[in-house]
Simulated assay, not measured.
Amino acid sequence: MRILVADDEPNIRELVRLYLSKEGYDLEFASNGPEALEKALQTQPDLVLLDLMMPKLDGFEVTKGIRERSDVPILMLTVRKEDTVKVAGLELGADDYLTKPFNPKELVARVKAILRRSDGIQRSGTTVQVGTLQLDRQRREASLEGRPLTLRTKEFDLLFALAQNEGIAMSREQLLSLVWGYTFSGETRTVDVHVNHLRQHLAGSAVKIETLRGVGYKLVAGPRDALGA
C-alpha cells in the first residue's frame, strides 16, 4: 500500500514516516499544496494524509482538486479544532480528519481502518435495494428511481450500510465502525455531515434517512410525499 503524506512541517513528516514505515507502507511526501495535488493525481496512492494549512495551496483546495479526478481516501490533518473547519473539509470530500497534535498510534489505527475498509469494499460483490434505491457495491454504482446517483466514496459506503439495515436504527457509533472502520472516540460529526449530504441526494424520493433522537439514523422507503426527518 502506498501513502502520500502532504505536510509542510518536517517534524510531522518524520513522525509519520517513523510510524507508518514500521507498518510496511510505502511512503512518498509533499511539502506544499501544488506538489501534493500533482503527486496525488499522478502517482495514484492508496491514501492521502493531507495537512490543512499547506503553503501555496491549502488543504481545502487540494482536496477539491483531488476529488475532481479521484476517489482516493483522504485523511485530513489539522491544528484547528472548530467544527466549521472540520465540516468544510468533509463537505469538500475528505473521508476523515485527525486533529493535531495527534497520538501516532491513533494515526496508525486510522490509516489501517481506512485502507482495510477500502480494500474490503473493492472485493465485495454485494448488491442491495430499498424501494427505488439500488446499490451495487462491487461496481460502486447507485441509482434512485432509475436515475444514477453520483456519490463520493464515504457517502456510498454510508448509504450502503444503512440500506443493508433497512428500517433498523443504527447508532452513530455503529456507523463509524461499519463505514470508517474504527471504534467510537468521542467524535461523530463525520457521520452527521455525510448523512446531510445523502439527504440532498435522496430529496424528493420515497427513500428517507430518518433521525432517531438520542439513537442515530435509519433508512426507510415510504410514500413519495413523506417528510424526511
Rank of each mutant, 00 (worst) to 15 (best):
Val5Gly: 05
Val5Pro: 08
Val5Ile: 13
Val5Lys: 00
Ala6Met: 09
Asp7Glu: 11
Asp7His: 08
Asp8His: 06
Glu9Leu: 14
Glu9Gly: 02
Glu9Ser: 13
Pro10Met: 08
Glu14Ile: 04
Leu15His: 01
Tyr19Trp: 13
Tyr19Val: 15
Tyr19Ile: 10
Tyr19His: 15
Ser21Asn: 10
Ser21Ala: 13
Tyr25His: 13
Tyr25Pro: 02
Leu27Glu: 04
Leu27Tyr: 07
Ala30Val: 03
Ala30Arg: 01
Ser31Cys: 11
Asn32Lys: 12
Gly33Leu: 11
Pro34Ala: 05
Pro34Arg: 05
Glu35Thr: 11
Glu38Ile: 02
Glu38Val: 10
Glu38Met: 13
Glu38Ala: 13
Ala40Asn: 05
Ala40Lys: 03
Leu41Pro: 02
Leu41Thr: 01
Leu41Met: 12
Gln42Asp: 13
Thr43Tyr: 11
Pro45Cys: 11
Pro45Ser: 09
Asp46Gly: 13
Val48Glu: 03
Leu49Tyr: 00
Leu50Tyr: 00
Leu50Asp: 06
Asp51Ser: 10
Asp51Gly: 09
Leu52Tyr: 03
Met53Thr: 09
Met54Ser: 03
Met54Gly: 01
Pro55Ala: 11
Lys56Gln: 15
Gly59Asp: 01
Gly59Cys: 10
Glu61Arg: 12
Glu61Cys: 07
Glu61Asp: 15
Val62Tyr: 05
Val62Ala: 09
Val62Gln: 07
Thr63Gly: 10
Thr63Pro: 05
Thr63Lys: 06
Lys64Phe: 09
Lys64Leu: 12
Gly65Glu: 10
Arg67Gln: 07
Arg69Cys: 09
Arg69Thr: 08
Asp71Glu: 15
Val72His: 05
Val72Tyr: 00
Pro73Lys: 07
Pro73His: 06
Met76Asn: 06
Leu77Thr: 00
Leu77Met: 12
Leu77Tyr: 02
Thr78Tyr: 07
Val79Arg: 07
Val79Lys: 09
Val79Ser: 15
Arg80Gly: 01
Arg80His: 14
Arg80Phe: 11
Glu82Gly: 12
Asp83Ile: 09
Asp83Met: 12
Asp83His: 09
Thr84Cys: 04
Thr84Ala: 13
Val85Trp: 01
Lys86Leu: 14
Val87Leu: 05
Ala88Lys: 15
Ala88Asp: 12
Ala88Asn: 12
Gly89Ser: 05
Leu90Phe: 02
Glu91Met: 13
Ala94Ile: 02
Asp95Tyr: 01
Asp95Arg: 04
Asp96Phe: 00
Leu98Phe: 07
Leu98Thr: 01
Thr99Ala: 08
Thr99Asp: 01
Lys100Pro: 10
